[in-house]
Design a protein around this nucleic acid. Sequence first.
DNA 1: ATCAAGATTACCT
DNA 2: GGTAATCTTGATA
Length: 207
Amino acid sequence: MELVKEIIRSEKLGKSFYLRDPLTVARDLLGKIFVKKEKNNILLGRIVEVEAYDGAIDESAHSYIGKTKRNAVMFEEGGLLYVYFTYGVHFCANVVTGKKDEGTAVLLRAFEPLNNFELLAQRRFGKKDITLKEKINLTNGPGKICQAFGISREENGESLLGDKIYILDSVEVPENKIVQTTRIGIKKSTELPWRFYISDNPYVSRK
DNA sequence: ATCAAGATTACCT
DNA sequence: GGTAATCTTGATA
């Protein structure tokens, strides 16, 4: 696993990365490596699709209604993971951005998985051996990411500057490979072009 | 106490 | 393309 060894040598993104506005953080998160350390495994995923949310002007952001028990983590200073439960079925993970009380975050929508494929497959489909089609289906959506990477309630509020979950720097994605469009699955503020993805990546949920 | 809606997914025609 | 699944939250009474 030369690739994995090389990746692990990269530097962890520091606090200043997350303190910026959500649009900038969203775009810059593309290509970075999401890391989740577990007891016996270290799971790696390249971030290939994200969406920015900003409670100040964005009616679809959870933080738009103000601070509540559910969205409180979104109002913390940038650099935390905000995890919420939705549709009675799925968890979704966000990176909190900006200063305290801004209520801004970036939804992680799709990863390209880089290792531990059998573990991811077990969690998603209950089996180790999967078809090529199922492989693409491992992490090509926000709920799928959380199921495959084992992210749920307990990870809500987790610091990305700690040892358990963090994001590694990586080579910059060239501007001509980045697509910016409107967001998916929302009913309000649908005109805002706050979704970003890597154009040629097969794990992008929808193009 | 009740209720509607939800930053989704899987499965159906 | 349509829709059921499934449950938590926030709003209203």
